[in-house]
Design a binder for these strands. Structure first.
Length: 571
RNA sequence: UGGCCCUUGGUGUAAUGGUAACACUACAGGUUUUGAUCCUGUCAUUGGAGGUUCGAGUCCUCCAGGGCCAGCCA
């Protein structure tokens, strides 16, 4: 069983929110209880930015022996879907968090919410407004000019009660009436300029409440009251809700509520070369830039899972990025680093040739097969050993051979040179066979029989390359992924460009003629291996058009040779 | 030209008036049957200017830069 606890020597995770909670606890606030909530709207899949919030909320609940509620913020049936509810639950669970019995829906509270609205009306703090959306916008004013009072602002309590009843009863059309809080049309905070708390929505079937309602409460009204009803102590949300906090507090101050949770805001995650906006991810799916929400290029939890990223890596990543109020731009390298760290420890090693080049060992007997032993992990004996067939004809990667070494640092196979075949023998290349176009199609080599598990005498062989036996290898498709966008901040919106303009057309590279070590036949969907010298690869749930197994590259190995090549190329 | 918020190495964070710490990246070495892993070392006087203080990344003032807000979205 994998532990989701941080290692002993790691410094404990702390942040300004945990410090506030610590202070609240010492002050004896909330009877010493800590209750948080993760409140997704079921209108899309969860992404890495949500993971930050999930780890924060569930992490705090765990560490303070409290609870974290999973609450679906389902007040806008127009955009929401039961399929998203299910996907969200699967993803939170997969990340390793459990909400137990604490699964809620804002729609569970539609009746009490309605009663709170009535209470507000009775207190003269809310009114039904007949202004059209366009007129309302005009009355609202701008950032620099105050708004004007609605002509319907001074309706009597009785009239408001009657009108609100009739809104609920379905007497009015969409957009014709709204219920608004009566606060201050001149406030410098636009959220306080008599915000709408109920709107009319006919003809939509809500995934939880069906056709029961034709009026739906707005976020600001719903959220604070849902928090209060559930006894949330700390309501953690992202920075864009900072301006809403006065409204959050206003509703709770006006109404007879069970408790007054504290809203605390933190900055959302910005991850370079991708987008963490549900709207944009929705568009990428809808417009066919990717194959779905779980496309391995997507920063969604489902995409990362299909890519082979583990929950441990994601949680570690969330620990490392921290929680602050500062705008941030996290490098993809940090995520990759946490992925590699986890996979390096846990992924069994295999050999796979992605761009095959045939190699014949001339002094190896035809028809002979030898079964060699290979360690599943070079540093972890407990992961055991496997058997790898070796024969006269093998495949190596095209990149591992050059007729002439480009520089003295090149350690792979060259004409007349020697190299170690990983887990096998040292070979020497004697001859290069080319086709009519001059392309290398085959290598003729000799092997040194004395070099299995032993170094050759009198000489040093520096290079080690991987291989597979041609006769025994299994054919497969391998998909290599690169960053989704070619710009570190694709959604910055500067220079008049749309994030779509930065889409990386080379984000998917499909290799259809790969050969894998025979034992990989038994790989199950979701299994992750290290293909030595290449990277980490995850077996995809599906096969390709030719019914071949598919492996997705989770992340490449760190590649210092590529750096050397790049440096010498730029010189 | 309104209100709210933010600013510590390339990046993300820590330091809660007392020697600027950690991780990632980068660079330089070492080990290695993965150019991986692992190990060692190097890289910031905290946006700017004043002020308070024995002492300021931390407190105060001003300035600069950045973010968010004018959905019947959340």
């Amino acid at each position: 069983m994998e532990s989701n606890k941080r290692s002993e020597d790691a410094r404990p995770v702390t942040n300004f929110i945990r410090q506030i909670i610590d202070q609240d606890l010492t002050a004896g606030k909330n009877d010493g209880k800590v209750v948080t909530r993760f409140p997704p709207e079921p209108n899309g899949y969860l992404h890495i930015g949500h993971a930050k919030s999930i780890c924060l909320n569930f992490g705090i609940a765990e560490d303070y022996h409290g609870h974290c509620h999973l609450r679906f913020d389902d007040t806008n049936p127009h955009k929401e879907d039961l399929a998203f509810v299910e996907a969200i639950k699967r993803d939170v669970q997969w990340l390793g968090f459990s909400w137990g019995e604490k699964e809620f829906y804002a729609s569970d509270y539609f009746e009490p919410l309605h009663d709170y609205a009535v209470e507000l009306i009775k207190k003269g703090k809310a009114y039904v407004c007949d202004l059209s959306p366009e007129a309302a916008r005009e009355y609202r004013g701008t950032l620099t000019e105050p708004g004007r009072d609605s002509p319907y602002r001074e309706r009597s309590v009785e009239e408001n009660l009657d009108l609100f009843d009739r809104m609920r009863a379905g007497e009015f059309e969409d957009g014709s009436h709204v219920l608004r809080a009566k606060i201050d049309m001149a406030s410098s905070n636009i959220n306080l300029r008599d915000p709408i708390i109920y709107r009319i929505r006919h003809g939509v079937v809500h995934h939880q409440t069906g056709a029961q309602w034709c009026i739906y409460p707005m976020y600001d009204f719903t959220h604070c009251l849902s928090d209060s009803i559930e006894g949330i102590t700390h309501s953690l949300c992202t920075l864009e809700f900072e301006d809403h906090r006065p409204l959050y507090d206003w509703f709770l101050d006006q109404l007879e509520v069970p408790c007054h949770p504290q809203q605390i805001e933190f900055s959302r995650l910005n991850l370079q070369y991708t987008v963490t906006s549900k709207r944009k991810l929705t568009e990428l799916v809808a417009e066919g830039f990717v194959e779905g929400w779980d496309d391995p290029r997507m920063p969604t939890i489902a995409g990362l899972r299909r890519r082979g990223v583990t929950p441990v890596a994601i949680r570690d990543f969330c620990d490392r990025i921290g929680i602050t109020k500062a705008d941030n731009s996290v490098e993809m390298g940090l995520l990759e680093s946490t992925i590699r760290e986890d996979l390096n420890i846990h992924a069994p090693r295999r050999m796979a040739v992605l761009r095959p080049l045939k190699l014949v060992i001339e002094n190896y007997p035809e028809g002979q097969t030898e079964v060699l032993e290979a360690a599943n992990h070079p540093q972890d004996e407990d992961m055991g050993w496997r058997k790898v067939p070796f024969s006269r004809e093998i495949y190596i990667d095209r990149d591992d051979f050059m007729e002439v070494a480009p520089n003295k640092k090149f350690k792979r196979l060259v004409t007349g040179g020697e190299v170690r075949l990983r887990n096998a023998y040292v070979i020497r290349c004697d001859e290069v066979i080319k086709n009519e176009q001059g392309e290398i199609i085959e290598l003729r080599c000799h092997y040194d029989t004395a070099t299995l598990g032993a170094n050759p005498e009198g000489r040093k062989v520096k290079g080690v390359i991987h291989w597979v036996s041609a006769e025994h290898a299994i054919a497969a498709e391998v998909r290599l992924y690169d960053r989704l966008f070619s710009h570190p901040a694709p959604d910055a919106g500067k220079d008049g460009k749309d994030y779509r303009d930065h889409f990386n057309a080379d984000s998917l590279c499909t290799l259809t003629q790969c050969y894998l070590e025979a034992g990989l036949t038994e790989a199950q969907p979701g299994d992750v291996f290290q293909f030595e010298r290449e990277g980490y690869f995850c077996k995809d749930p599906a096969t390709n058009a030719n019914d071949l197994p598919v492996f997705n590259r989770t992340v490449s190995l760190r590649d210092s040779w590529a750096k050397i090549e790049k440096q010498s190329a730029s010189r």
